[in-house]
Write a protein that binds this DNA or RNA. Structure first.
Lengths: 108, 108
DNA sequence: CAGAATCCAACACGATACTG
DNA sequence: CAGTATCGTGTTGGATTCTG
């Protein structure tokens, strides 16, 4: 990631959401914060990969990581304002995919 | 690609535009058709990779491949209607990236 | 010119085990 | 619970060469 200069805004954005599970993470966090284990089950990635992608999203300012000082450990991930705006920018693409990919697959 | 079931429209769409150079290809084709060599220079991918990604986009109905029966060979790639609609759905994301990634990098 | 073929490297991702 | 450590793998992309 972060290879070099971008050619346009889209490939810059793709760099942020390019990981295999990132859009799923964003989708899960859209309505409410999630704990690590919740995300793991809902998204389906392994611990290692999920942790890595969450860290990248955190570095990019998309998700916020809140640590509760408790035993047992408790960490909560949520969208930042930038993350919310990203999700909004993603909405038309999601609609496009729903109509032109999901629907087509369903139709056979 | 085409691993299994999708969770939402966004990851379905991501599957279509997920290749490393695909959004750059879409971006290049937005205003006018391009020949293979043109795309190679503008996008920056190697022949093999460019050909592979173009074929995937073709299979997905995003780009149209028109072969002119000439010597020397002449092939022209252009966006289908679906491709145009995809590019439109991508526009907000491009705007987001321009504002929140490109601008930030430029600012340091 | 537009690509196919071949070989190779990188890295993202996966599986499992372990820890504070 | 929320990760890290380690190792293994497979897809993706890159470099080069060849061809109709």
């Amino acid at each position: 990631m972060r290879p070099g200069a971008y050619h346009c805004g889209i490939d810059a954005a793709m760099d942020v959401i390019g990981g295999k599970w990132k859009v799923l993470i964003l989708w899960a966090l859209e309505d409410r914060p999630h704990r690590f284990g919740e995300l793991r089950r809902e998204v389906g990635a392994t611990e290692k990969v999920l942790a890595a992608q969450l860290r990248e999203l955190e570095v990019d300012g998309i998700v916020h990581r809140r640590v509760f000082d408790e035993v047992p450990p408790h960490v909560e991930y949520s969208l930042t304002e930038l993350g919310v705006s990203l999700n909004e920018a993603l909405a038309p693409l999601g609609e496009w995919g729903r109509r032109n990919v999901l629907a087509v697959k369903a139709a056979g």
